[in-house]
Amino acid sequence: MSNPIKNPLAAEQLVADPVPSAGEPISMHPDADLSKTVGKIEVKNAKMSMRSVDVFYGDKQAIFDVNLDIARNEVIAMIGPSGCGKSTFLRCLNRMNDTIENCKVTGSVLLEGEDIYATKQDVVPLRAQVGMVFQKPNPFPKSIYDNVAYGPRIHGLAHSNVDLDEIVETSLQRAGLWSEVKDRLDQPGTGLSGGQQQRLCIARTIAVSPEVILMDEPCSALDPIATAKIEELIDELRSRFTIAIVTHSMQQAARVSNRTAYFHLGYLVEVGKTDDIFTNPNHKLTEDYITGRFG
């Protein structure tokens, strides 16, 4: 499925987002028990449900037995030090790891009860259902209009040009970009500012009516004002979509998410309500990380 001719979306994303590196090795806390996740992993009527997920890059195991449910219309934040596996785990949720050679995923990842790793599953519609926004804004070298219209076109979502115009306008409005670009839809997307480009990428993602949106550090290349706009947008999008966001900014996780999952060395250490995690976490590693105590 990583064939760039068959799947141009994947090809673009592959260029924009290289294989995540393992990062610096982290010293293990002596009394840390990582094997059992602290907190409640199950939710009622889950949108996505992951069980016993292991991920290997060649011989090296990157994710160890992660179990986690994602609730409908929730924003779940995944935090943890570099190399903890949070991005790797996020990429399992729409099979983005398929594009990486040597990467093997085991366990089950269910979307609405269906295993997305089943052999009959076609990843092209899957990635429309579970969209992704990356760290660096990566608009196609096309006009603003075509950037948003691209997905609906290849997925056959628009029956006429009027339909397509409407999808483009709605998506740009939901991404909070419409008023800024409506007079220059024919100009290249790459000519926008960083924050606008990122909102364009979000508009492109929501244009294909996804159910889940994965965001891999969507604000780390943006200034505080653009970041605030994206966070505001996440807040608005949560009524329509389920959102999983990986972020290095703990304040951002605290601001935008309902639940927070803390990853460490490939293990899911703790998951819980964001309000609890940031005022009174249960696991020592979580506490050490969010209070800035890792040496």
């Binding site: 703990m250 304040q251 605290a254 005022t279 009174n280 976490p281 979580t286 506490e287 209070t291």
Partner: peptide, 10 residues
């Protein structure tokens, strides 16, 4: 300056 969390915040 620090935006403390968890026990630092408390």
């Amino acid at each position: 300056r620090r935006q403390p969390a968890a026990r630092d915040l408390r």
